[in-house]
């Protein structure tokens, strides 16, 4: 009988091992462990063996039963898992590409604009929006531009039928803000500007500017230099140097042009910077007291600075784009390069 038991265990173990199907496993379970199974038959024949051997044999039958039960449970689990994973004969080709969701892109001008906005927001500036369609007062008069100033020419400025015009600079927002809000003022205003320039590699009749204006007590040229240097280093990296040099604008006094060290050659001199090591960034200066007077701000109490930057020019510098027209062509082969 001991032999019978061993045989039974062997064959059951083998059958469980090769079983590949959960229905089959149910049958195996019935065959060996069920009510009319081979194992329960051994129990009924327990009385056939000598009484003194019975307890030991009974124990080994119990042990065998427990072992087989464990094997079956383990197999059940394995079968369930394998059906879940749909394991097939062939392996996954892990080198096949993943399913990537569609990704679009922001226009390079928007990317640069956002960076500029974020730099200024982090320096506690507020963002103020203005109008593209403006009148002569806000675009010229309030900005201290003489009546016969050449920039008022139709050759430079687009006029509309009703006498209004398309703003030639975002400085118009300065005027609108100073008309409405008392100092302190600390704003940047990004937006579209229009000038009667023929489209070429570095010009477009429609272009983008961002204007910064700070008016408060105790604002000096040093604050302008500070802001400019901080702005340039956040945008172009901390190796970038800035400088200002005297210039003329009707609405700032003193006025200056702002340069940054060439982002291509780091100031060593190259084709982009025409071997000068410097790139022009935009115009700046201290708000002319006349502008304050026109806008009824106490020019004795308050001082302020303003500067304007060309966003298109900065985008071209930052992304090494050689021709401004590329920005307005909207070729997806170009757009898809910007992440």
């Amino acid at each position: 009988m001991q032999n019978q038991l061993l045989e039974l265990i062997n064959s059951a173990t083998q059958e469980i091992a090769v079983c590949n199907d959960s229905h089959e496993l149910v049958n195996i379970k019935a065959k060996y462990l069920g009510k009319k199974s081979l194992l329960s038959e051994l129990y009924t024949r327990l009385k056939e063996i000598p009484a003194e051997e019975r307890p030991a044999f009974g124990q080994s039958v119990n042990l065998a039963k427990r072992q087989l039960e464990e094997l079956i449970v383990a197999k059940e689990t394995a079968l369930r898992l394998s059906s879940w994973h749909k394991v097939k004969d062939d392996q996954l080709d892990l080198t096949l590409p993943g399913i990537v969701p569609s990704l679009g892109s922001l226009h390079p001008l928007t990317k640069v604009l956002r960076e500029i906005e974020d730099v200024f927001l982090s320096m506690n500036f507020e963002i103020a929006e203005g109008f593209d369609i403006e009148d002569e007062f806000h675009n010229f008069d309030a900005l201290n531009t003489p009546k016969d100033h050449p920039s008022r020419n139709k050759a430079d400025t687009f006029y509309l039928k009703d006498g209004n015009l398309l703003r030639t600079q975002t400085s118009t927002v300065q005027v609108r803000i100073m008309e409405t809000y008392p100092p302190p003022i600390k704003i940047v205003s990004p937006g579209r500007c229009y000038r009667n320039d023929k489209s070429d590699a570095s010009h477009s009749p429609v272009f983008h500017q961002v204007e910064a204006l700070v008016v408060d007590e105790g604002i000096t040229l040093a604050d302008l230099k500070d802001t400019l240097q901080n702005f340039a280093q956040i945008l172009f990296g901390n190796k970038v140097q800035t400088r200002i040099r005297p210039h003329f604008f009707p609405f700032t006094e003193p006025s200056a042009e702002m340069d940054i060290s060439c982002v291509m050659c780091e100031g060593a001199g190259c084709k982009v910077c025409k071997m000068s090591g410097w790139l022009e960034l935009g115009g700046a200066g201290m708000v002319d007291p006349n502008v304050f007077d026109i806008l009824k701000i106490d020019s004795e109490k308050y001082t302020g600075f303003a500067f304007g930057l060309g966003i298109d020019r900065i985008a071209m510098m930052k992304y090494n784009i050689p021709d401004m027209r590329i920005l307005y062509e909207n070729d997806v082969r170009v757009l898809s390069q910007f992440r």
């Binding site: 969701p101 569609s102 990704l103 679009g104 892109s105 922001l106 226009h107 001008l109 928007t110 956002r114 507020e126 963002i127 103020a128 929006e129 593209d132 398309l166 803000i177 809000y181 003022i185 704003i187 579209r192 229009y194 477009s204 009749p205 429609v206 920005l327 307005y328 909207n330 997806v332 757009l335 898809s336």
Partner: peptide, 29 residues
């Protein structure tokens, strides 16, 4: 002075489109 609501709503809208596969274009006025 700043209209923060409008500012961030426009950014969020553009971002939503970008993350759904759309590319921004900029045309002249």
């Amino acid at each position: 002075i700043m209209d923060r609501h409008a500012f961030y709503l426009m950014r969020k809208t553009a971002d939503y489109l970008v993350y759904n596969g759309f590319r921004e274009v900029i045309n002249l006025s």
